[in-house]
Design a binder for these strands. Sequence first.
DNA 1: TATAGATAATTCATATATGAAACGTTTTCG
DNA 2: CGAAAACGTTTCATATATGAATTATCTATA
Lengths: 147, 147
Amino acid sequence: MKRFRIQQSGQGEQDRQLMFSLVNAGRAIEQRLEDALAGVGLSLAKFGALTHLMEAGEPLNLSECAKKMTCVRSNITQLMDRLEADGLVRRVDDPQDRRAVRAAVTELGAERQAAGAKEVAKVQAALAATLNGTDHGALQRALSAIK
Amino acid sequence: MKRFRIQQSGQGEQDRQLMFSLVNAGRAIEQRLEDALAGVGLSLAKFGALTHLMEAGEPLNLSECAKKMTCVRSNITQLMDRLEADGLVRRVDDPQDRRAVRAAVTELGAERQAAGAKEVAKVQAALAATLNGTDHGALQRALSAIK
DNA sequence: TATAGATAATTCATATATGAAACGTTTTCG
DNA sequence: CGAAAACGTTTCATATATGAATTATCTATA
């Protein structure tokens, strides 16, 4: 005798679920990062900017910052205003190009970035623990396909 | 003879990669949804609010909206201002509680929500295609663990 | 070389989000 | 009953993000 599956979810419903789970997981991790970084006086945006500047090892044009952070330049203008107000970055003139402004990390900024990196590492470890029953390689491959 | 693995990434580095891939994947999907919804005059925030109201089938308190959308109430105040300016929602008095304001979807709002749902379905289908070599069940379970 | 176009940064308007403070209304309880 | 607490919404200040318009400077070329 033929049975009808009760509570069956169609493929479309599962796809929708998966899509929103991806969005929600991303947001949840962002929130964990924001919370952890708030403990050392940083936001994720500020930490990201400081990290790119530290990795570059030298002051960067605001346009270069925008490229590295994949955002528009007017966003960087404002972010640098806030970082400068916090004393974490200084705007310096570019002697080669008088249109340009370069962002230099201050000593306090470098310390703050290092403290932030420790907080990020904790979130990262907690996430790894959460995902300990998962094939990390497969997950990484799936996520990398999403552009 | 013992070999040294060149270019080996430590576990920590892979964990960091995975964490940021999750954040980036979530943002990428949000961006796809924003782009698709922009085509019918909606943002993801507006579509979400309209969808919750349509699912409820009746006007909802702004506080109830905030709870469903997991955001603070002042955010809903502003979102409703914009939805009202668009003619997609109307604020109506709650006769039971004179403090409360309820959001009612207009006819135009209902049409717009339906159009948005079609756009969302397209994004969803494209994502499913992108993930066609992946074990959706395993991915869903991993994502659901992230809170 | 003069100028037209490209480029760097900022300003402004706007959208989305949070959290604190203010305000009116409702509920609770001494 | 009446005061205090709780509740619902809004307002304000702020952070983050986008995109258009503006200003200053630089570069290429007619």
